[in-house]
Design a protein around this nucleic acid. Structure first.
Length: 278
DNA sequence: ATCCAGGATCTCC
DNA sequence: GGAGATCATGGA
């Protein structure tokens, strides 16, 4: 029997897990098994109640992981005010929370994400974990640490399907082993300096850096702009006209300010789900 | 089968 | 500093 570990509105387990921000979960008749770092937990949602099946001691971790303490009701109200497109995007999936994921896992995962499909990204990450991560019970594998993934050379990563991203991962792992790229040190940097530091890694451009900052370092003001976000922003606010990266970032900053990262996730899931602009 | 994906890099102007 | 080709791979 599951233990109720959360009860509240403004949260959907399915929407949060399936909106494209995390890649390691399995769904089986309404029950989501989520793997985060070296932890695995299973969850079922019944109305506003979240039931948990897993290690009792991990509950504080999962409460933080799902970002349950934040006032999403107030956040959504603020983002929707005077913005019909944003309001529609939020109503499309009003239960999305931004997960608080692990730094190294996000770094490698979003390097893999470039010019790639989400199902394929999930497959590559799963193979990396099975090959280099340690087993954490009944067929589940932790995401490898930088030291563990350092055992993989470029050729081995290519065999797992990484393609041209293999050498990017090698460089990312090499840097992630150094203190300068530890999340603790990175977290001391202001956002722009942090972005530039991450972009020192070969294969990390602004989009990947922004995803890492948003999903693992709590930089909620950043606005990762992928193909779907470009389409949605173009359709929603610029009458379908293409816009430069600078124009897009400026529009997001003006409209969404310090909450741009949340806006981005609602817009991304909405645009991708409804194939806006495609 | 052909297209394309939560882009980044390299080249060339 | 901006536009265009190129990069591996396999799901759709």
């Amino acid at each position: 029997m599951g233990k109720e570990i959360w009860n509240g509105s403004d949260f959907s387990l399915a929407q949060t897990v399936e909106c494209g921000q995390c890649f390691r979960f399995h769904k089986k008749d309404g029950r989501y098994t989520v793997i985060a770092g070296h932890r695995v937990g299973a969850f079922v949602q019944e109305d506003d109640s979240i039931l948990f099946y897993g290690e009792e001691g991990d509950i504080p971790f999962w409460r933080n992981y799902f970002d349950w303490e934040r006032d999403y009701g107030g956040l959504k109200k603020q983002l929707s005010a005077g913005d019909a497109v944003m309001a529609e995007a939020i109503s499309y999936a009003p239960g999305i929370h931004l997960l608080r994921q692990e730094f190294f896992e996000m770094l490698i995962s979003f390097i893999i994400s470039q010019n790639n499909h989400i199902p394929r990204i999930q497959g590559i990450i799963a193979r990396i974990c099975e090959r280099y991560g340690r087993e954490i019970g009944e067929g589940y594998f932790a995401f490898p640490t930088p030291e563990e993934l350092a055992l993989a050379d470029e050729e081995a990563l290519r065999r797992l399907g990484c393609g041209f991203r293999a050498r990017y991962i090698v460089d990312a792992v090499e840097k992630a082993k150094t203190k300068a790229f530890s999340p603790e040190i990175l977290q001391t940097l202001p956002t722009e300096a942090l972005r530039q530091r991450l972009m020192e890694i070969c294969g990390v451009g602004q989009k990947v850096a922004d995803c890492v900052m948003l999903f693992s370092l709590g930089r909620y003001e950043v606005f990762p702009a992928d193909v779907w976000i470009r389409r949605v922003m173009s359709e929603a606010y610029f009458a379908g006209n293409p816009l430069s990266a600078r124009e897009l970032q400026q529009a997001a900053a003006e409209r969404f300010g310090a909450k741009a990262g949340f806006a981005q996730q609602y817009l991304f899931h909405y645009g991708r789900g409804k194939k806006i602009g495609k």
